[in-house]
Simulated scan of single mutants.
Amino acid sequence: MALPNIFDKSVTDEMIARINKLEADSKPKWGKMTTPQMLAHCNVTYEMVYEDKHPKPNFFMKFIIKTFVKNIVVGEKPYKRNSQTAPAFLITDSRDFTLERKRLIDYLNQTQQLGDSSFANNESHSFGKLSIVEWNNMFYKHLDHHMTQFGV
């Protein structure tokens, strides 16, 4: 079963509508992150695409990540609740809800406007080259998981 296409404007708009239903004090159905922390956590995926602020894994770590983590992240199977996350995605400090929400919406719009062809077989931060379907799954599945976590 294919996941919705985050590169499609209607799917992006639907995800943005879900994000806009969040409140700064929304409570998660599971997990310990606050809403601002969750938004900052979701932004990390896009920071790794659009910004140079996260160090890339060395050859050995990239091999391990591609071997054991890649299929979990880019496959269609939903994430399990309370799954372990990579260190770069751990957000433990307080964050500004409005700023993190705006950043995430801006990243989503940028990604949608670039379109899927901009990602075809591009090198990801940690997983090597990804197909359009793998990029879509990584982007959509992660956001859907956390929107569901927060009941939107």
Score class of each variant (00 low, 15 high):
Met1Gln: 13
Ala2Trp: 03
Leu3Val: 14
Asn5Asp: 15
Asn5Pro: 06
Phe7Thr: 02
Phe7Trp: 07
Val11Asp: 06
Thr12Arg: 14
Ile16Asn: 12
Ile16Leu: 14
Arg18Pro: 05
Ile19Tyr: 01
Asn20Phe: 05
Lys21Ile: 10
Leu22Pro: 03
Asp25Gly: 00
Asp25Met: 00
Pro28Tyr: 01
Trp30Asp: 11
Lys32Asn: 08
Met33Tyr: 10
Met33Gly: 01
Leu39Met: 07
Cys42Gly: 00
Asn43Tyr: 13
Tyr46Ile: 08
Tyr46Ser: 13
Tyr46Leu: 12
Glu47Ile: 07
Tyr50Lys: 08
Tyr50Phe: 13
Glu51His: 09
Lys53Gln: 10
Lys56Asn: 07
Ile65Cys: 02
Phe68Ile: 09
Lys70Pro: 05
Val73Met: 00
Val73Gly: 03
Val74His: 07
Gly75Ile: 11
Glu76Ala: 11
Lys80Pro: 03
Arg81Trp: 10
Gln84Trp: 07
Thr85Ile: 14
Ala86Thr: 11
Pro87Ile: 10
Ile91Thr: 03
Thr92Ala: 03
Asp93Gly: 15
Arg95Ile: 01
Arg103Pro: 11
Arg103Lys: 15
Arg103Thr: 14
Ile105Thr: 14
Tyr107Phe: 15
Gln110Cys: 01
Thr111Gln: 03
Thr111Ala: 06
Gln112Thr: 15
Leu114Asp: 13
Gly115Asn: 06
Gly115Arg: 00
Asp116Ala: 10
Asn121Ser: 12
Asn122Ala: 14
Ser124Met: 03
Ser124Trp: 09
Gly128Asn: 14
Gly128Pro: 14
Lys129Met: 04
Lys129Gly: 09
Ser131Ile: 06
Ile132Thr: 05
Glu134Asn: 14
His145Asn: 11
Thr148Pro: 06
Gly151Thr: 12
Val152Lys: 08
